[in-house]
Amino acid sequence: MKRITIAFLICSVLVVLLVAGCAKQPTEDIKAAQASVDAVVTEGAQKYAPEDAKMITEAMNAAMEEIKVQDGKTMKDYGKAKEMLAKVKTDAEALKSNLPMKKEQAKNTALAAQETAKTAVQEAKTLLSKAPKGKGSKADIEALKADVKGLEDSLAEVQAAMDGEDYGAAMEKAGSIKEKAGEVAAQVTQAMEKVGAKAK
């Protein structure tokens, strides 16, 4: 009787070991989580939400480490890893759904900055076209015209950055152009005052 009990116990342990040991890697979960991470990176998460992107990548790494831990065990249990992968997937999807909004915000801010810069350059240009090329101002006006042309060249770079969806760079350049255009306009006014003309 006792022998039967011991044999039963051993068999039970073996069955448990066999079942647990045969637990397979959650490959589908890994694939799904990795696909979500890849998708969010492709959407530009590292550019628009670098901190969130880093956290998601780290969480994915941690999940993979947990899988490795279980891989090395006799009694494998991928439950925790599955939970981690599910969280990675959820977080990545949430970030991905937020990205268009973040992108749009960045785009709109850059567009506004681009418009402001364009207006500032146009104002300087208009002022320059009204400046009388009289005694003492001709050389200054010629130089300022070259300045405006240079600013127009820089405006083209803003557009190139917008086209490349590099809204940060576009905004940065637009801000600098606006600053310089203001200085040029002030110099045009100065040159006009030099010859006694009033800025209109």
Partner: peptide, 22 residues
């Protein structure tokens, strides 16, 4: 007088300098 020929580049350099300083 020929300075105006260089102004186009100089103002672009100034724009970039502002960006770099920021």
């Amino acid at each position: 007088n020929e300075g105006r020929l260089a102004r186009r580049d100089l103002i672009q350099a100034e724009v970039i300098l502002i960006e770099a300083k920021k």
